[in-house]
Design a protein around this nucleic acid. Sequence first.
DNA 1: TCCAATCATGTAATCGTTTTCACGGTGTGC
DNA 2: GCACACCGTGAAAACGATTACATGATTGGA
Lengths: 342, 342
Amino acid sequence: MVSIKDVAEAAGLSVATVSRALNGRSAVSDEARARVLSAAESLGYRPNVVARSLRTDRTGTIGLVISDVLNPYFTELARSVEEEARALGYSVIIGNADERAELEAHHVRSLLERRIDGLIVSPADGRSPLTLDAADGPTPLVFVDRWIPGCAAPVVRADGRGAIRDLVAHLYGLGHRRLAIITGPAATTTGRERVEAFRSALSEFGLSLPESHVGRGDFQAESGRLATERFLDLPERPDAVFAADNLMALGALDAIRERGLSVPDDIGLAAFDDIPWFPHTAPPITAVSQPTAELGRVAVRALADLISGGTAGSTVLPAHLVVRRSCGEPETSAPTGGATRE
Amino acid sequence: MVSIKDVAEAAGLSVATVSRALNGRSAVSDEARARVLSAAESLGYRPNVVARSLRTDRTGTIGLVISDVLNPYFTELARSVEEEARALGYSVIIGNADERAELEAHHVRSLLERRIDGLIVSPADGRSPLTLDAADGPTPLVFVDRWIPGCAAPVVRADGRGAIRDLVAHLYGLGHRRLAIITGPAATTTGRERVEAFRSALSEFGLSLPESHVGRGDFQAESGRLATERFLDLPERPDAVFAADNLMALGALDAIRERGLSVPDDIGLAAFDDIPWFPHTAPPITAVSQPTAELGRVAVRALADLISGGTAGSTVLPAHLVVRRSCGEPETSAPTGGATRE
DNA sequence: TCCAATCATGTAATCGTTTTCACGGTGTGC
DNA sequence: GCACACCGTGAAAACGATTACATGATTGGA
């Protein structure tokens, strides 16, 4: 590999001048600059960012730890994070936790050792001690989507409560009374928030949520399938099921299809997180839609601010309900709140 | 940040001994090792991998440049690559090219500057000069899925020809004669291969592929929508459309739905790349399925071999057809070749 | 004309590791 | 008892960049 020394030699200048010419920080004569640039060009010089980082203590890189790379919600998030970061001059290293706490820890550790400038985390486990340490450590950190309660780090997330209330109103309006939910892990904030919002919306409509109508999932498809099977085995099966993320909704569809049942005639289905496939499933699925890309952008800007010494705070963006046909044929009246219909 | 020097001081030993104790390479007395470990522990020492990489010229990292992170095919690939790499002791940095040649170049350049140990690329553009240079450069490189013809680097990919022939046989058996294809960019190998295989299978059945039945797409949803709209505007619209990837099939569904037409009654639809949502779309979509995760694993193993001085070669794995209902109600006879039915 | 400021450049220290080399001490084989 | 291998250790040289400081030349103002 050709180093700055080779360039200096070829240009007949010192490495210091070459460095200055290439970085354009301090004054260099036009003649020297030209010699450097042509030497660098003809030798195919590529700066060694490893050496640079060691000296400057900056890597120009931020880490992003997401809970599940197979979840379209998180890939959309990852894409917008990378895009915004690139616009701000940062590279992004993605770590996929696969909803496993120990994998999350592995990636957080590995990213910190890599001396990234900052970290964006969507914790797979809300109690992860390592991530907690990291949040209190010297490396700037921002939570996105999920967070760890009691951490000082800024949180960028969507508030699903209003949209979940709209969803319950929608279900109630369609005549559904026995409602069930497939939750995420209780260890995650989103897992808890969604079930709590659902429960409190139910009680607003005078409905209760018996334990048998709470399926404990882990945000992955298989758990949605299992929980749905249990619902279908109940003496009185639920009128409608709310899956707390899109993958568990996929699992629910698998289970319902296996039994030869139909949505929404035999059982209604709704999901948290809207994805491009939902308009095309049989039937199109009613879902709570988050401003996913915007969450990613805001998180990056908050992190960039922290890195440059700022004091960025938390952000909460609204989610909204998108009504389709998976809970029954839509009523004629307009839905409550900010819901849209397709 | 606490450095090896601090540990050495605390342990009352030289940095050399600390380094040896922590890496376990060369002999260190039990007593010294114990002192080092306890000092490192109590100081919370984390090695600086940047400095280590500078010295050893190894980063323990491989780069993965994929064409589109929003494409479930590539996320599944990315996941298996990361998993296998982790098992082999490597970290993975993912670059998303978004099907844009200049973004691909950006990521390749940035990864090389980062001095990754090896690179896995699925080129968004088969002529990308920078990627071509990289393939001939000192950094080991493996192509996955797509490749750049004329490069010496190993290619790990699936051969879709047999499955595409099975698909055409399936369509022919259902009585479809006017077949159309939405291709990927001609600049990609998979873009070309899939249309060529389709064309040659058609001619095997005595069918032709007029220019009006070739929609030029770019592997993204919007292009699938536009190409499908043109098909639907033809005086005689095609009996069935084959989309060369899953996102363009999504776009095709959008277009068909907008016109109020139905699949497969008004027009049949099939796709390359099977994804978990296809069994649940309306109707379930017939698709060519690749051994995606296996491709990722094989690519990583080939790259690891190259990195350690080996001479890994190319691998071609078979793809197969999964028949569902999007081309018409299945015939009663068994499908040709290795096709499965759901 | 002279002093000081500015400019372009070079020298060398530095970042935190790993690793080569040297060195003294300890056994081992004869 | 001697030579030799080996073991544990430390000093110091790398790795490739950035940058504080020094230096000599040029310029500008008084």
